[in-house]
Computed example of a mutant assay.
Amino acid sequence: MPELIKELEYRAELGEVDEVGSGPFGQRVIANVTGGEVTGDRLKGTIVGAGADWLLIGPDGFGRLDVRVTVKTVDGAFIYVHLNGLLEMTAGVTAVIQGGDTPTNFGEQYFFTNPRMETGDERYSWVNQTMFIGEGRLVPGLAVEYRVYRIANS
């Protein structure tokens, strides 16, 4: 059985949420990522440049995440992060998105992602050959926090 090893925590601050509306694939919502940070023993940095969360909410009550950001490490490397995921659109999740002041908790809703990272910097080349899984929650202000684990052989 594979082993999950905690690799880092990731916090993305979200700006204004644009409600594109219901289209042929569901309700599209776009949130620009305005900042954030990554903290872990092997990887620390801040979210820089352009980034967004393109959320597609289906009639089944789940949102399909498509998030893309760039992390600049504390020692100057750039790492592209692309994550897909599944978010159960519970009343608590919807309340935070609409400006509520009560955070959701990890495990309170089905909220998992599979971050993919890539870089050309040799110091972090290990991210190019590593599978990750993240568990998420929403916090007021509006931000998303993830606990990210790497998948390792047992």
Results as ranks from 00 to 15, higher is better:
Gly36Leu: 11
Ile97Gln: 09
Ile57Phe: 09
Ala12Phe: 08
Gly21Phe: 05
Thr113Trp: 04
Arg137Leu: 03
Asn128Phe: 00
Asp66Ala: 14
Leu4His: 05
Ile133Ser: 11
Ser22Pro: 11
His82Arg: 15
Glu16Met: 02
Glu135Thr: 14
Val29Asn: 03
Gly76Ser: 01
Glu122Asp: 00
Met131Tyr: 12
Asp75Ala: 02
Ser154Lys: 11
Arg42Trp: 06
Asn114Ala: 15
Phe62Arg: 05
Pro2His: 14
Gly120Ala: 12
Pro2Val: 15
Met117Ala: 15
Thr102Leu: 14
Gln129Leu: 04
Phe62Thr: 05
Met89Ala: 07
Val96Cys: 10
Gly45Pro: 10
Phe78Ser: 08
Gln109Tyr: 03
Asn114Gly: 15
Val148Thr: 04
Arg11Met: 11
Asn128Gln: 11
Arg11Leu: 07
Gly35Val: 06
Glu19Lys: 12
Leu55Tyr: 04
Met131Ile: 05
Ala77Thr: 06
Gln98Ser: 15
Asp66Tyr: 01
Gly23Lys: 13
Thr119Arg: 14
Gly92Glu: 06
Asp101Ser: 15
Phe25Trp: 01
Asp66His: 12
Glu135Arg: 15
Met89Gly: 05
Ile57His: 11
Phe78Gln: 10
Leu65Pro: 06
Thr46Arg: 13
Val139Cys: 13
Phe78Cys: 09
Gly85Trp: 12
Leu138Tyr: 08
Gln109Thr: 13
Glu16Tyr: 02
Val74Phe: 03
Phe106Ile: 01
Glu13Ala: 04
Arg150Trp: 10
Phe106His: 01
Val69Ile: 04
Val17Ile: 14
Arg123Ser: 01
Asp101Met: 15
Leu83Val: 13
Gln129Pro: 13
Gly21Gln: 08
Gly92Asp: 10
Glu135Ser: 14
Leu138Gly: 06
Ala91Asn: 07
Gly100Leu: 03
Leu14Ala: 02
Pro103Asp: 08
